[in-house]
């Protein structure tokens, strides 16, 4: 299972994710987002644009490493990994 950690900002839009351990089955970050969409419908469009790219001011980490493929999210995940979905600190 992959464990997800979120910026608190997202809980104001998706309160169903707050105060619980969120875990999904996935082999890539793209699959993580797809599984997350089933738990919180609409969240995919908060994280990605229409082209499926990670929004400019969103960051996703697998463990300590920021994902490299922001276009198709092909970065692999392993059972036991933690994926962090965060807002980028883009100044200010």
């Amino acid at each position: 299972m992959i464990t997800l950690q979120f910026t608190r900002h997202l809980f104001s839009f998706f309160p169903q994710l707050e105060g619980r351990v969120v875990q999904v089955e996935a082999q890539s970050v793209a699959e993580v987002v797809r599984a997350l969409e089933a738990l919180a419908p609409g969240i995919g469009f908060y994280l990605l644009d229409e082209l499926g790219r990670v929004r400019t001011h969103v960051n996703i980490f697998v463990g300590p490493d920021r994902i490299r493929d922001r276009k198709t999210l092909s970065d692999r995940v392993q059972p036991g990994d933690t994926v962090w979905i965060l807002q980028a600190l883009s100044g200010g």
């Binding site: 900002h9 469009f45 908060y46 994280l47 929004r55 001011h57 969103v58 883009s90």
Partner: peptide, 8 residues
């Protein structure tokens, strides 16, 4: 306009 999260 959410900024980080796009327009909704």
């Amino acid at each position: 306009g959410h900024g980080h999260w796009g327009a909704k």
